[in-house]
């Protein structure tokens, strides 16, 4: 893929604060960027690697919780954020090691990732140090040194920076030797092995990177809203959002997750405007769109037509 569409999308996103300083619009964009980042993580493993995960909340939630917990214990927010991403990557590596070593693929891999995320959700909901069902608050102390900003615009650019870094990473992986190995494993694992590719190591590397990116989205979430609980961190809704955006936008494409996330969040926002505060209306639409996307637009919005 050539680089210019990526730059064009980034430039368009970067121009949003220049067009509008409306709080609702900026709030919406930050939310969409956080979903986009989580989805970019999913896409690396699910799209480029062909391993469909239904449990990316495990990484997102770990990033969010570790960041919040470390700050409660007096650790600097930026250091906490870095450790949150590292913890998410570690959870990814452990889940990947166990599942890929056991040879789980396809439906089985989807199920086991779902179960891991649920175990973490139950633990976070029950353990005393996570604040249990009441959740965790990050102390409000607006200083850049604390990863808290007086202006939404600053946070928007921080989130955009993360999305841009993830775009650059997936773009370069797509052109690298590792990307080619990943595609080979996705298309036919036996054939890839026969060519001398270490399929286990390739998948393990993919899930670790993927988990780190999604954990970064969790970190952004907790620093933006300064609150996390077990459902927001580890709920199935997070895992679904992370996979829905790439499927709608284009599985295994560099731009798919970002385009899909902005489209889906926009659609959800519009639905809520039209239907009023009826919980679930936007999700009904997302579910139907998932079915329709698979049936009619298998490559996604920016994907190649089959």
């Amino acid at each position: 893929m050539r680089g210019w569409p990526i730059l064009a999308v980034l430039a368009a996103l970067a121009a949003v604060p220049a067009v509008t300083s409306d709080n609702i619009a900026l709030n919406f964009m930050v939310g969409a960027l956080i979903v986009a980042l989580a989805a970019q993580g999913w896409n690396l493993l699910g799209g480029f690697g062909g391993q469909l995960s239904f449990g990316h909340a495990a990484f997102y939630g770990t990033g969010a919780y570790v960041t919040a917990l470390l700050q409660q214990h007096g650790v600097n927010a930026w250091a906490g954020a870095a450790l949150g991403v590292a913890a998410g990557a570690l959870v990814g590596a452990v889940i990947g090691f166990l599942s890929f070593r056991a040879g789980l693929r396809g439906s089985y891999f989807a199920l086991v990732t779902l179960a891991f995320a649920e175990v973490l959700r139950i633990l976070a909901n029950a353990a005393p140090f996570t604040g249990g069902a009441a959740g965790l608050l990050v102390r409000l102390d607006v200083r850049a040194a604390n990863f808290q900003f007086a202006s939404r615009v600053t946070f928007f650019y921080v989130a955009l920076g993360c999305v841009a870094a993830a775009l650059l990473l997936t773009w370069s992986i797509g052109r690298s030797r590792f990307g080619a190995q990943l595609a080979a494993v996705r298309e036919n694992e036996e054939a890839a092995r026969a060519l001398g590719i270490d399929a286990f190591a390739t998948k393990l590397r993919a899930i670790t990177l993927s988990a780190a990116i999604t954990a970064a989205a969790g970190v952004l979430y907790v620093q933006y809203y300064l609150y996390i609980d077990a459902g927001l961190a580890y709920g199935t809704g997070v895992s679904v959002a992370a996979l829905l955006a790439p499927v709608i936008g284009g599985v295994g494409t560099v731009l798919g997750p970002v385009v899909g996330a902005v489209a889906l969040e926009g659609l959800g926002h519009l639905t809520r405007l039209v239907a009023g505060p009826v919980p679930g209306v936007d999700q009904v639409l997302f579910g139907l769109m998932l079915v329709a996307a698979i049936a009619f637009v298998p490559g996604g919005l920016v994907g190649r037509r089959a």
Binding site: L243, Q283, F286, G287, L290
Partner: peptide, 22 residues
Amino acid sequence: RDGNVLLVTLGLAIAIQNGLLV
């Protein structure tokens, strides 16, 4: 395709569950 079936039934699950919520 297996991957598609997973995603289609997941989509149905989301739509039905939230339809009931509405």
